[in-house]
Amino acid sequence: MLTRSGAGMIAAATGLVALGVWADYPELVTLGLAACGALLVAVAWLVVSPKLTVVREVRPRRVFEGSAAQGTLTVTNVGKRNSPPLMVTETVGGHRTTVTVPALTAGHRCTVSYPLPVARRGRYLIPPVELGHSDPLRLLHRGRASGSELVVHVYPRVHLLTMISAGGPQDTEGQTTSSAPLGGVAFHSLREYAPGDDWRRIHWGATARTGTVMTRHVVVPDEPRQLVVLDTASPPYAGAQFFEEAVRVAASFCVAAERSSLPLQLRTTGGALRESSGSALEFLSTVDSSGADRGLAALTDLVRDVVSDTQGVALTIVTGRVDAQATQLLMSLRARFLSVSLAQLVSSDSAVPARPRGVLAVAAPGSEQFATHWNRLVLR
């Protein structure tokens, strides 16, 4: 590929030769031919490409907004001739980052590190890096792709939130369910041994009777589940920035549940469902709002299968401004849950947000202010 210098050299060569022939000026023709010779040397230089191996790493592959991700490139000259300086181009989310790798003698390597522009939440597909080098006069440039595609997830920024104490203490001899988290001390049932099970939990009596290795299935009983519902409809939010803040609040609740070792389920009014903090954060890195989403009008159908007789559920709804119809709906659902919390991300200069009776409601214009107000209210 021609560089600006190369294009100028071609123009100069053409002009000099033409002017020299027209003016019968041999010296100008000679200068034009010299310029052509320089271009031919540049072509020959690039034809014999150096033999290089490239190893690229991106760490970490999962970061939170505001954190830094870094690319590391190790280039090794495995050929017999020296390699010229290289220009390495990394493309992330439409932004191009160019890094220079110095000239390498045969058998030597160089490692360079560079920051990646991953400031906003999202799923970034990073294509192979582009390795490029030029001739000594920088007339031509040759590039080639190296490595494989990588994916980097940028999670929403999270804030420290205090979980509401609901459901009472975790009773080691309380009721249990097959879906309860493993790792507790409460016996639920006997089941067939699976690779990786603790051999100390093998029930030898049942094993002898059935002829199959049986183990005790122990779980954490009487543990309230945390259900976080993110409103992904566009109308409740005064602008895209308020939806972004709502996503951060939902992510903060997911992380808070994980820190408290509470079972978590994240749902959106659009119908998406995630069962753990890790998968919830990965989903929240790409979630978007939609005008076709029913919003909180779909809440009754959304939670119909959630409440059971053996486990309580603490419901947290993250949305924008709540209208009168949604307020009545939340109050009607209150009796079905251990607690109902309402997080509203609204403009500070708008009307007073709704506060449904029996619902812990906190409103704020941003996720950081919400965390401050929430923690102050819960801890008082």
Rank of each mutant, 00 (worst) to 15 (best):
Val151Ile: 07
Thr105Phe: 07
Glu149Ser: 09
Arg96Asn: 07
Leu104Val: 04
Gly79Ala: 08
Ser113Tyr: 12
Thr100Cys: 10
Thr98Trp: 12
Arg138Asp: 03
Met163Pro: 02
Tyr124Ile: 13
Gln170Asn: 06
Val101Glu: 00
Val151Trp: 09
Ser83Gly: 01
Gln170Tyr: 11
Pro102Trp: 14
His153Tyr: 13
Gly143Ala: 15
Arg81Gln: 05
Thr162Ile: 13
Tyr114Phe: 06
Gly167Asn: 01
Gly168Val: 14
Pro136Asp: 10
Arg144Leu: 14
Val101Phe: 06
Pro127Phe: 15
His153Ile: 08
Thr172Asn: 08
Tyr114Asn: 05
Pro127Glu: 15
Val88Ala: 00
Ser148Ile: 09
Arg123Gln: 08
Val78Arg: 01
Gly93Ile: 15
Gly174Lys: 02
Leu161Tyr: 02
Leu140Cys: 05
Leu86Glu: 00
Arg157Cys: 08
Gln170Cys: 09
Val152His: 06
Arg120Gly: 02
His141Phe: 13
Ser146Ala: 13
Arg142Gln: 05
Arg120Thr: 08
Glu149Lys: 13
Thr97Asp: 03
Val92His: 02
Gly167Tyr: 06
Pro84Phe: 01
Pro136Ile: 12
Ser165Pro: 12
Ser134His: 10
Ala106Val: 08
Ile164Tyr: 08
Val99Thr: 11
Pro115Gln: 08
Thr172Tyr: 15
Ala119Ile: 13
His108Asp: 13
Pro156Met: 13
His159Asp: 10
Tyr124Trp: 05
Ser134Gln: 07
Ser146Gln: 13
Glu90Ile: 11
Leu140Val: 09
His159Ala: 03
Thr89Pro: 04
His133Val: 12
Glu149Gly: 03
Glu173Arg: 13
Gly94Glu: 07
Val118Asn: 02
Val129Cys: 04
Glu149Met: 11
Leu140Ser: 01
Val101Ile: 14
Pro136Asn: 03
Pro115Ala: 02
Met87Ser: 09
Pro102Lys: 15
Glu173Phe: 11
Asp135Leu: 14
Gly122Cys: 11
Val78Asp: 05
Gly132Tyr: 07
Thr89Gln: 10
Arg138Tyr: 05
Leu125Gln: 11
Val101Pro: 01
Tyr114Met: 15
Leu116Cys: 06
Thr100Tyr: 11
Ile164Glu: 02
Leu125Met: 03
Leu160Tyr: 12
Arg81Ser: 04
Glu130Lys: 13
Val154Asp: 00
Arg123Ala: 00
Leu137Asp: 03
Val151Cys: 08
Asn77Lys: 07
Val101Trp: 03
Ile126Cys: 01
Arg120Ser: 07
Leu86Ala: 00
Leu161Gln: 07
His159Val: 03
His153Met: 14
Ala166His: 10
Ser113His: 09
Gly94Asp: 01
Ala103Gln: 01
Leu116Val: 02
Val112Pro: 02
Lys80Trp: 02
Asp171Leu: 12
Tyr155Pro: 04
Arg144Gln: 12
Arg96Cys: 08
Gly168Leu: 13
Thr172Val: 15
Pro85Trp: 14
Glu149Pro: 09
Thr97Met: 05
Ile126His: 00
Leu125Ile: 15
Val154Glu: 01
Arg109Asp: 05
Glu173Ala: 10
Glu149His: 09
His95Cys: 04
Arg120Leu: 06
His141Gln: 02
Tyr114Gly: 04
